[in-house]
Simulated assay, not measured.
Amino acid sequence: MGLFITLEGPDGSGKSTQIRRLAERLGSLGIQVHTTREPGGTPISDQIRAMLLDPENSSMVAKTEMLLYAASRAQHVAEVIRPNLAAGRVILCDRYIDASLAYQATGLGIPLEQVRQINEHATDGLWPTRTYLIDVPSELGLQRAASGRGKQLDRIEQRDLDYHRRVREQFLQIASQESERIVVIDGTQSIDAVTEAIWQDIRQFL
């Protein structure tokens, strides 16, 4: 079996950059790596992603959002994650179930256990071996998202600061409750420092 690693964090935390760097370093060691993201990762999941993030879909209710994320994840796990794990590859995934617990449960007020149960069903109970939570203050993350994209913020990013603060607080709470799986990384450090902090931990699994 391969190794399933996820990166989580508030918007603008730098997850995509770190996944790219980790993939390059692992690849340089001759390790087979598959990078992916959520929502998305498959043609069907990417179509769901477009619906979820489109600012035009402002009327989408919380329950619909939660179920669409779970549907995208079910397809992603079946089509991409499990086959790559079975092939012995390292999976680096940008967001997973923890994101739904933060963004849809705490962020939107859906009962946490309901979100957890639906996603357990969608994934047949598949959880990552290790999760790196890149933590940044909500204000900084949103500034980075706005300045780094050079485009309009997506539907989720456009929500108010209080929402994003709730999301961050839930990420940190999950990390404190699941410290054996989740490692919190200070995302206000330099990009190189964040990469090195993750690398020093990930080496134990190689």
Rank of each mutant, 00 (worst) to 15 (best):
S59A: 14
R130G: 07
R89P: 01
S16D: 04
S100A: 14
E180I: 00
H34G: 00
R95F: 13
A86R: 09
G40R: 02
M66D: 01
V194C: 03
S179G: 07
A145F: 10
P128I: 04
S13L: 08
H34A: 13
G2I: 03
G30D: 09
A78Q: 11
M60W: 02
S147E: 15
Q170C: 13
E157N: 02
D154K: 09
D135E: 12
R82D: 01
G125R: 08
E79H: 09
R155I: 02
L142R: 07
E8Y: 07
E79V: 02
S45M: 06
Q204R: 14
I19G: 06
L29D: 13
D98P: 05
G150K: 03
A105Q: 05
L153D: 01
M51E: 02
A105V: 02
I118E: 07
G187F: 12
G27C: 10
T6K: 07
L3G: 09
T131D: 07
T106P: 00
R49L: 07
E139L: 14
E65A: 12
A146N: 04
R73I: 06
D154Q: 05
T195Y: 08
S58Q: 07
I134V: 13
R21F: 04
L142V: 03
R165L: 11
P137W: 12
W199V: 05
G107E: 05
A87S: 13
T195F: 13
L7W: 01
T123E: 08
Q117E: 15
T64R: 03
V136Q: 13
T195Q: 14
D162W: 03
S58L: 02
R181V: 08
R95Y: 11
T36C: 10
I91N: 08
S45D: 09
D201G: 11
L161I: 15
Q104E: 10
L67R: 01
I134F: 06
C93Q: 12
R116A: 15
G30M: 09
Q177N: 11
G109S: 04
S16A: 13
R159T: 01
I134A: 09
A146M: 09
E157T: 01
F171T: 00
G30L: 13
Q32S: 15
D135H: 12
A105Y: 10
Q47T: 04
V136G: 11
T131R: 04
G125D: 08
V61L: 12
S16G: 11
H164V: 03
L133P: 01
K151S: 15
M60Q: 01
Q200C: 12
I185M: 07
L68Q: 00
T17Q: 05
D186K: 12
I5F: 08
P111V: 11
Q114D: 15
G14T: 01
R155A: 14
L112D: 00
E120C: 08
A23W: 03
D160W: 08
A74P: 00
S45H: 11
K15S: 05
G41M: 08
E79N: 10
R130H: 10
A197K: 05
R144W: 08
V115T: 07
A99F: 10
S100E: 02
Q104F: 10
A175M: 07
A145Q: 04
D94V: 06
G148I: 02
H164S: 03
G107K: 01
L68G: 01
R166V: 03
A105H: 09
E139P: 00
E65F: 09
P137R: 12
G14Y: 05
V33T: 06
T129L: 10
R89K: 15
K151C: 11
I110L: 15
